[in-house]
Amino acid sequence: MKFGNARSALAGGALAIAALFTTSALADGVVNIYTYRQPDLIKPVLDAFTAETGIKTEVLFLDKGLEERIQAEGQNSPADVIMTVDIARLTSAKEKGVTQPLVDDEINKLLPAEYRDPEGNWFGVTKRARVIYASKERVKDTAITYAELADPKWKGKICMRSGQHDYNLALFSAAIAHWGPEKTEEWMKGLKANLAKKPDGGDRPQAGAIAAGECDIAIGNTYYVGLMRNNEKDPKEKEWGNAINVLFPTFENGLTHVNISGAALAKNAPNRDNAVKLIRFLASHEAQQVYAEKNYEYPVEPGLEPSETVKAFGELKADTLPLVDIAKGRKAASEMVDRVGLDDGPSS
Protein backbone atom coordinates (compact mmCIF):
# COMPACT_ATOMS: atom_id res chain seq x y z
CA MET A 1 0.00 0.00 0.00
CA LYS A 2 1.32 3.41 -0.95
CA PHE A 3 1.52 6.09 1.70
CA GLY A 4 1.47 8.72 -1.03
CA ASN A 5 0.96 12.33 0.04
CA ALA A 6 -1.76 11.50 2.54
CA ARG A 7 -2.33 13.87 5.41
CA SER A 8 -3.12 12.27 8.72
CA ALA A 9 -4.96 13.39 11.82
CA LEU A 10 -4.18 11.91 15.21
CA ALA A 11 -7.02 9.67 16.24
CA GLY A 12 -7.81 6.47 18.00
CA GLY A 13 -7.48 4.70 14.67
CA ALA A 14 -3.71 5.16 14.56
CA LEU A 15 -3.02 1.61 15.68
CA ALA A 16 -5.48 0.20 13.18
CA ILE A 17 -3.87 2.22 10.39
CA ALA A 18 -0.45 1.00 11.45
CA ALA A 19 -1.67 -2.58 11.21
CA LEU A 20 -2.79 -1.95 7.63
CA PHE A 21 0.74 -0.91 6.71
CA THR A 22 2.41 -3.89 8.37
CA THR A 23 2.58 -5.96 5.19
CA SER A 24 4.15 -3.10 3.23
CA ALA A 25 6.45 -2.17 6.08
CA LEU A 26 7.88 -5.66 6.31
CA ALA A 27 8.22 -6.20 2.58
CA ASP A 28 11.68 -6.61 1.06
CA GLY A 29 13.11 -3.57 -0.65
CA VAL A 30 11.00 -0.92 1.09
CA VAL A 31 11.76 1.97 3.41
CA ASN A 32 8.87 3.86 5.02
CA ILE A 33 9.31 7.57 5.61
CA TYR A 34 7.29 9.79 7.91
CA THR A 35 7.94 13.39 6.97
CA TYR A 36 7.09 16.99 7.78
CA ARG A 37 8.78 17.99 4.51
CA GLN A 38 6.53 18.50 1.50
CA PRO A 39 6.75 15.31 -0.61
CA ASP A 40 7.67 17.21 -3.79
CA LEU A 41 10.75 18.63 -2.04
CA ILE A 42 12.15 15.22 -1.10
CA LYS A 43 11.02 13.36 -4.24
CA PRO A 44 14.18 14.10 -6.31
CA VAL A 45 16.54 12.67 -3.72
CA LEU A 46 14.27 9.69 -2.95
CA ASP A 47 14.02 8.90 -6.67
CA ALA A 48 17.81 8.97 -6.87
CA PHE A 49 18.02 6.61 -3.87
CA THR A 50 15.63 4.12 -5.50
CA ALA A 51 17.51 4.33 -8.80
CA GLU A 52 20.78 3.48 -7.06
CA THR A 53 19.58 0.83 -4.60
CA GLY A 54 16.34 -0.57 -6.00
CA ILE A 55 14.73 0.08 -2.62
CA LYS A 56 11.26 1.60 -2.88
CA THR A 57 10.31 4.58 -0.71
CA GLU A 58 6.85 4.94 0.84
CA VAL A 59 6.10 8.46 2.07
CA LEU A 60 3.58 9.56 4.68
CA PHE A 61 3.38 13.37 4.89
CA LEU A 62 2.02 14.97 8.04
CA ASP A 63 1.76 18.69 8.70
CA LYS A 64 1.57 18.15 12.46
CA GLY A 65 1.64 15.44 15.12
CA LEU A 66 4.30 13.23 13.55
CA GLU A 67 5.94 12.33 16.86
CA GLU A 68 2.58 11.67 18.52
CA ARG A 69 1.56 9.47 15.59
CA ILE A 70 4.63 7.28 16.03
CA GLN A 71 4.10 7.15 19.80
CA ALA A 72 0.50 6.00 19.29
CA GLU A 73 1.55 3.31 16.83
CA GLY A 74 4.12 1.98 19.31
CA GLN A 75 6.08 -1.14 18.40
CA ASN A 76 3.82 -1.69 15.38
CA SER A 77 4.80 1.61 13.77
CA PRO A 78 5.76 1.21 10.10
CA ALA A 79 8.00 4.29 10.31
CA ASP A 80 11.61 3.58 9.34
CA VAL A 81 12.97 7.08 8.79
CA ILE A 82 11.79 10.48 9.98
CA MET A 83 12.54 13.41 7.69
CA THR A 84 11.89 16.96 8.83
CA VAL A 85 13.06 20.54 8.82
CA ASP A 86 14.30 22.64 11.72
CA ILE A 87 16.73 21.72 14.46
CA ALA A 88 14.04 22.06 17.13
CA ARG A 89 11.87 19.44 15.44
CA LEU A 90 14.83 17.08 15.16
CA THR A 91 15.71 17.47 18.83
CA SER A 92 12.03 17.16 19.75
CA ALA A 93 11.83 13.80 17.99
CA LYS A 94 14.77 12.64 20.08
CA GLU A 95 13.29 13.99 23.31
CA LYS A 96 9.92 12.35 22.65
CA GLY A 97 11.59 8.97 22.25
CA VAL A 98 10.60 8.24 18.64
CA THR A 99 14.17 7.92 17.34
CA GLN A 100 16.97 5.44 18.02
CA PRO A 101 20.72 6.07 18.06
CA LEU A 102 22.63 5.28 14.90
CA VAL A 103 26.41 5.27 15.17
CA ASP A 104 27.67 4.72 11.67
CA ASP A 105 31.26 5.41 10.63
CA GLU A 106 30.32 6.04 6.99
CA ILE A 107 27.70 8.67 7.87
CA ASN A 108 29.92 10.29 10.48
CA LYS A 109 32.74 10.66 7.94
CA LEU A 110 30.41 12.37 5.48
CA LEU A 111 28.59 14.76 7.81
CA PRO A 112 30.41 17.42 9.89
CA ALA A 113 29.95 16.96 13.63
CA GLU A 114 28.03 20.25 13.99
CA TYR A 115 25.28 18.86 11.77
CA ARG A 116 24.57 15.65 13.65
CA ASP A 117 23.52 14.58 17.11
CA PRO A 118 26.50 13.33 19.16
CA GLU A 119 24.49 10.22 20.06
CA GLY A 120 23.31 9.61 16.49
CA ASN A 121 19.62 10.40 17.01
CA TRP A 122 19.44 12.87 14.09
CA PHE A 123 21.49 13.95 11.09
CA GLY A 124 21.39 17.30 9.29
CA VAL A 125 21.48 16.75 5.53
CA THR A 126 20.92 20.25 4.08
CA LYS A 127 21.26 23.88 5.12
CA ARG A 128 19.11 26.90 4.35
CA ALA A 129 19.53 30.56 5.27
CA ARG A 130 16.77 32.81 6.62
CA VAL A 131 17.18 35.88 4.47
CA ILE A 132 15.45 39.02 3.24
CA TYR A 133 13.49 39.14 0.01
CA ALA A 134 13.75 42.71 -1.28
CA SER A 135 11.84 44.37 -4.11
CA LYS A 136 14.08 44.94 -7.13
CA GLU A 137 12.04 48.02 -8.00
CA ARG A 138 11.63 49.75 -4.66
CA VAL A 139 14.53 48.70 -2.40
CA LYS A 140 17.94 50.13 -3.17
CA ASP A 141 19.61 48.81 0.00
CA THR A 142 22.20 46.14 -0.70
CA ALA A 143 22.55 45.09 2.95
CA ILE A 144 20.07 44.98 5.83
CA THR A 145 20.84 43.53 9.26
CA TYR A 146 18.36 41.53 11.30
CA ALA A 147 18.32 44.39 13.83
CA GLU A 148 17.32 46.85 11.10
CA LEU A 149 14.06 44.99 10.49
CA ALA A 150 12.80 46.97 13.51
CA ASP A 151 13.94 50.33 12.06
CA PRO A 152 10.94 52.68 11.57
CA LYS A 153 12.14 53.32 8.00
CA TRP A 154 10.45 50.01 7.13
CA LYS A 155 7.10 50.87 8.75
CA GLY A 156 4.30 49.28 6.75
CA LYS A 157 6.74 47.66 4.35
CA ILE A 158 7.47 44.16 5.75
CA CYS A 159 5.65 40.91 4.99
CA MET A 160 6.15 37.56 6.70
CA ARG A 161 4.53 34.22 7.43
CA SER A 162 3.34 33.37 10.95
CA GLY A 163 5.80 34.07 13.72
CA GLN A 164 4.90 30.67 15.13
CA HIS A 165 6.21 28.83 12.08
CA ASP A 166 9.31 26.72 12.66
CA TYR A 167 11.45 28.83 10.34
CA ASN A 168 10.67 32.06 12.17
CA LEU A 169 10.85 30.51 15.63
CA ALA A 170 14.37 29.31 14.82
CA LEU A 171 15.36 32.84 13.73
CA PHE A 172 13.87 34.34 16.89
CA SER A 173 15.61 31.69 18.99
CA ALA A 174 18.90 32.66 17.38
CA ALA A 175 18.16 36.31 18.14
CA ILE A 176 17.56 35.44 21.81
CA ALA A 177 20.89 33.60 21.90
CA HIS A 178 22.69 36.60 20.38
CA TRP A 179 20.87 39.51 22.04
CA GLY A 180 19.18 38.12 25.13
CA PRO A 181 15.40 38.01 25.70
CA GLU A 182 14.83 41.67 26.61
CA LYS A 183 16.51 43.15 23.55
CA THR A 184 14.91 40.53 21.31
CA GLU A 185 11.43 41.34 22.61
CA GLU A 186 11.92 45.06 21.98
CA TRP A 187 13.15 44.21 18.49
CA MET A 188 10.12 41.99 17.87
CA LYS A 189 7.80 44.85 18.85
CA GLY A 190 9.55 47.02 16.27
CA LEU A 191 9.23 44.26 13.66
CA LYS A 192 5.52 44.00 14.37
CA ALA A 193 5.09 47.78 14.01
CA ASN A 194 6.75 47.58 10.59
CA LEU A 195 4.46 44.89 9.18
CA ALA A 196 2.41 45.77 6.12
CA LYS A 197 -0.29 43.26 7.06
CA LYS A 198 -1.09 40.36 9.33
CA PRO A 199 1.39 37.48 8.89
CA ASP A 200 0.01 34.69 6.72
CA GLY A 201 0.82 32.17 4.00
CA GLY A 202 4.17 30.57 3.29
CA ASP A 203 7.51 32.02 2.22
CA ARG A 204 6.74 32.03 -1.51
CA PRO A 205 3.56 34.14 -1.17
CA GLN A 206 5.65 36.78 0.62
CA ALA A 207 7.56 37.21 -2.64
CA GLY A 208 4.20 37.39 -4.38
CA ALA A 209 3.12 40.17 -2.03
CA ILE A 210 6.28 42.09 -2.90
CA ALA A 211 5.63 41.62 -6.62
CA ALA A 212 2.07 42.91 -6.07
CA GLY A 213 3.34 46.02 -4.26
CA GLU A 214 1.85 45.05 -0.89
CA CYS A 215 5.24 45.30 0.84
CA ASP A 216 8.86 46.02 0.00
CA ILE A 217 10.73 43.37 1.97
CA ALA A 218 9.95 39.99 3.47
CA ILE A 219 11.59 37.26 5.52
CA GLY A 220 12.07 33.93 3.73
CA ASN A 221 14.30 30.91 3.13
CA THR A 222 16.86 30.88 0.34
CA TYR A 223 15.78 27.70 -1.42
CA TYR A 224 12.28 29.00 -2.17
CA VAL A 225 13.82 31.67 -4.39
CA GLY A 226 15.56 29.00 -6.46
CA LEU A 227 12.35 26.98 -6.71
CA MET A 228 10.39 30.05 -7.83
CA ARG A 229 12.90 31.33 -10.37
CA ASN A 230 13.18 27.90 -11.98
CA ASN A 231 9.50 26.99 -11.86
CA GLU A 232 8.64 26.26 -15.50
CA LYS A 233 5.17 24.97 -14.56
CA ASP A 234 3.95 28.13 -12.82
CA PRO A 235 4.76 31.43 -14.58
CA LYS A 236 3.29 33.34 -11.64
CA GLU A 237 5.84 31.92 -9.21
CA LYS A 238 8.63 32.57 -11.67
CA GLU A 239 7.51 36.19 -11.81
CA TRP A 240 7.55 36.38 -8.00
CA GLY A 241 11.07 34.99 -7.80
CA ASN A 242 12.36 37.40 -10.41
CA ALA A 243 10.74 40.38 -8.67
CA ILE A 244 13.05 40.13 -5.67
CA ASN A 245 16.69 40.30 -4.70
CA VAL A 246 18.13 38.11 -1.94
CA LEU A 247 19.87 40.01 0.85
CA PHE A 248 21.83 38.16 3.53
CA PRO A 249 20.95 39.83 6.85
CA THR A 250 23.43 39.43 9.68
CA PHE A 251 23.75 39.62 13.42
CA GLU A 252 26.47 41.77 14.97
CA ASN A 253 29.01 39.05 14.24
CA GLY A 254 28.47 39.60 10.51
CA LEU A 255 26.93 36.15 10.03
CA THR A 256 23.56 34.94 8.73
CA HIS A 257 21.17 32.59 10.53
CA VAL A 258 21.01 29.07 9.07
CA ASN A 259 18.89 26.06 9.88
CA ILE A 260 18.88 22.47 8.61
CA SER A 261 16.69 19.73 7.28
CA GLY A 262 17.46 16.31 8.60
CA ALA A 263 16.69 12.66 9.05
CA ALA A 264 16.48 10.24 11.96
CA LEU A 265 16.18 6.48 12.36
CA ALA A 266 12.73 5.72 13.78
CA LYS A 267 12.62 3.93 17.14
CA ASN A 268 10.99 0.69 15.93
CA ALA A 269 12.07 0.76 12.27
CA PRO A 270 10.89 -2.58 10.80
CA ASN A 271 13.17 -2.12 7.79
CA ARG A 272 16.20 -0.98 9.74
CA ASP A 273 18.84 -2.04 7.21
CA ASN A 274 17.08 -0.19 4.40
CA ALA A 275 16.59 2.81 6.67
CA VAL A 276 20.31 2.97 7.40
CA LYS A 277 21.02 2.72 3.67
CA LEU A 278 18.72 5.70 3.06
CA ILE A 279 20.36 7.85 5.72
CA ARG A 280 23.79 6.93 4.34
CA PHE A 281 22.58 7.94 0.90
CA LEU A 282 21.23 11.29 2.15
CA ALA A 283 24.71 12.03 3.50
CA SER A 284 26.43 10.94 0.28
CA HIS A 285 27.99 13.16 -2.38
CA GLU A 286 25.35 12.11 -4.92
CA ALA A 287 22.43 13.08 -2.68
CA GLN A 288 24.10 16.31 -1.64
CA GLN A 289 24.39 17.23 -5.33
CA VAL A 290 20.72 16.40 -5.92
CA TYR A 291 19.66 18.57 -2.99
CA ALA A 292 21.81 21.42 -4.29
CA GLU A 293 20.77 21.25 -7.96
CA LYS A 294 17.11 20.23 -7.66
CA ASN A 295 16.06 21.83 -4.34
CA TYR A 296 18.42 24.83 -4.28
CA GLU A 297 19.49 24.01 -0.72
CA TYR A 298 22.99 24.44 0.65
CA PRO A 299 24.86 21.12 0.94
CA VAL A 300 26.29 20.18 4.33
CA GLU A 301 29.12 18.33 2.56
CA PRO A 302 32.27 20.39 3.14
CA GLY A 303 33.53 22.03 -0.03
CA LEU A 304 30.50 21.20 -2.19
CA GLU A 305 29.17 24.37 -3.80
CA PRO A 306 25.48 25.22 -4.14
CA SER A 307 23.75 25.47 -7.50
CA GLU A 308 24.51 28.31 -9.91
CA THR A 309 21.13 29.84 -9.04
CA VAL A 310 22.00 29.96 -5.36
CA LYS A 311 25.57 31.14 -5.94
CA ALA A 312 24.09 34.11 -7.80
CA PHE A 313 22.47 35.28 -4.54
CA GLY A 314 25.91 36.12 -3.18
CA GLU A 315 28.15 34.62 -0.51
CA LEU A 316 26.53 33.04 2.53
CA LYS A 317 28.53 33.55 5.71
CA ALA A 318 26.73 31.14 8.01
CA ASP A 319 26.29 31.84 11.69
CA THR A 320 28.40 29.63 13.92
CA LEU A 321 25.84 29.59 16.74
CA PRO A 322 25.43 25.91 17.72
CA LEU A 323 22.16 24.46 16.42
CA VAL A 324 21.35 22.97 19.82
CA ASP A 325 21.42 26.50 21.29
CA ILE A 326 18.83 27.54 18.73
CA ALA A 327 16.66 24.56 19.65
CA LYS A 328 16.84 25.45 23.34
CA GLY A 329 15.30 28.87 22.69
CA ARG A 330 12.26 27.65 20.78
CA LYS A 331 9.81 27.70 23.71
CA ALA A 332 10.90 31.18 24.80
CA ALA A 333 10.62 32.41 21.21
CA SER A 334 7.11 30.98 20.84
CA GLU A 335 5.96 32.56 24.09
CA MET A 336 7.47 35.88 22.99
CA VAL A 337 5.55 35.81 19.69
CA ASP A 338 2.31 35.41 21.64
CA ARG A 339 3.24 38.03 24.23
CA VAL A 340 4.08 40.62 21.59
CA GLY A 341 1.05 39.66 19.48
CA LEU A 342 3.22 39.40 16.36
CA ASP A 343 0.69 37.30 14.48
CA ASP A 344 -2.08 39.82 15.16
CA GLY A 345 -0.48 42.17 12.68
CA PRO A 346 0.61 45.82 12.85
CA SER A 347 -2.61 47.50 13.99
CA SER A 348 -3.18 45.63 17.27
Rank of each mutant, 00 (worst) to 15 (best):
V125D: 01
T256L: 07
F251L: 07
K109G: 12
M228D: 14
A9V: 13
E239H: 06
W187K: 06
G314N: 02
D151E: 04
R272Q: 15
L41K: 09
D63F: 04
K236V: 14
K2S: 12
A283Q: 01
R89A: 08
L227V: 13
L46E: 06
D343N: 15
T84F: 01
D166R: 04
L278Y: 12
N295I: 06
F21S: 11
F21T: 08
K96W: 06
E186S: 13
L247K: 05
T84K: 05
L265Q: 04
V310I: 12
G190C: 10
F248A: 11
L149K: 04
V300F: 00
N231V: 05
N274D: 08
L321Y: 03
Y167P: 04
A287Q: 00
L282K: 01
V276M: 03
R161M: 08
V98Q: 06
E73F: 00
Y146A: 08
P199L: 05
T222Y: 08
L255C: 02
D344K: 15
V81W: 08
R138F: 05
Y224Q: 13
F61C: 02
A266S: 14
C215T: 02
N259M: 08
Q38K: 13
I82D: 05
A134S: 03
V81M: 09
F21K: 07
V310G: 00
A72E: 04
